[in-house]
């Protein structure tokens, strides 16, 4: 599937953008030209040769804050998505196979998680486990997990009742075999799409939590935090939120493009797509020859 994926221009663009984001995540703090926490008298300055993206309300360099905020923003987002993915997908698939007791218990647990108020739960978790970003991300991940559970369960249910799974069961296949051979390939595309959406949502969630001082305490830079603080100074510098917003937007867009590409490249649709592209390329070659 990876070969098919790389034949899609959208996948190549998305992976290129995500590679740049990954580099910023790893080397961002080193690349930052100024100390992201050190203020100056030059407040709300416009972009200049000294400060490419200008300065914020306490005179801190915006570019440095965006670069230094990358690790926390991206790593936390990945934590949320990773926790939700593992806690949601695995029980979601297994709920179809592990019998009615597991199915009933996991469904009720998921219903309970859906019913919990998001912010109250996050505050309670940080009060219980300490006010840290990881604790907050565990709380958020736990609350997003039902999304993965439902998507994985719905996709698995469709496959589990199919005749080819029945044929494999009649041949003596184990549950693990069925999941590996028949279920996983069909559950992966909707999961990938949910994952990309969650990664996007994760970035926005961090900004909400920063805004409320949960998990991340100012002046620690995060992309969402920069956006939230810039919004307070719109009369003085109307375009200030554009910079953090663009980087969040581009990252979320890249995740979504990758999810779409995975959906297109997976299974039968991927084969049809590649077949059509190969035929088109062959036609073009014939015309030029």
């Amino acid at each position: 599937m990876i070969k098919v994926l790389l034949r899609l221009p959208s996948a190549r663009i998305a992976l290129g953008v995500l590679l740049v984001i990954a580099v910023i995540t790893v080397f961002g703090p080193v690349l930052a030209p100024y100390d992201p926490l050190q203020g100056s008298d030059l407040t709300l300055a416009p972009p200049s040769a000294g400060h490419w993206l200008g300065t914020d309300y306490t005179g801190r360099d915006v570019l440095s804050r965006i670069l230094a905020g990358a690790p926390l923003s991206i790593v936390s987002t990945c934590q949320v998505a990773g926790i939700a993915l593992v806690l949601g997908t695995i029980p979601g698939i297994l709920s179809v196979y592990l019998g009615s007791v597991f199915e009933w218990v996991s469904l009720r647990l998921v219903d309970t998680l859906v019913a919990l108020p998001f912010l109250v739960f996050a505050v309670a978790m940080t009060a219980l486990l300490g006010n840290g970003i990881t604790q907050a991300m565990i709380a958020v991940g736990l609350l997003v997990a039902p999304l993965f559970y439902r998507v994985a369960r719905a996709a698995t249910l469709t496959v589990a009742r199919s005749q080819y799974v029945e044929a494999a069961l009649l041949a003596g296949a184990s549950t693990g075999w069925i999941v590996r051979r028949h279920v996983w390939g069909k559950v992966l595309p909707p999961i990938a799409i949910t994952l990309a959406t969650t990664l996007g949502v994760g970035l926005v969630v961090i900004s909400s939590l920063t805004f409320l001082g949960i998990g991340v305490q100012p002046p620690t830079p995060t992309w969402g935090g920069i956006l939230a603080s810039d919004l307070d100074y719109l009369p003085q510098k109307a375009y200030a939120p554009v910079f953090p917003a663009v980087i969040i937007l581009v990252t979320v867009l890249a995740f979504n493009m990758l999810a779409d590409a995975i959906r297109d490249a997976a299974g039968q649709s991927g084969r049809v797509l590649v077949g059509a592209r190969t035929a088109k390329a062959n036609r073009a070659r014939r015309v030029t020859a």
């Binding site: 199919s162 005749q163 080819y164 044929a167 051979r181 390939g185 299974g267 039968q268």
Partner: peptide, 10 residues
Amino acid sequence: DPLRSLDPDQ
């Protein structure tokens, strides 16, 4: 139905 009894991705 042979179409339904064979995995479309196999």
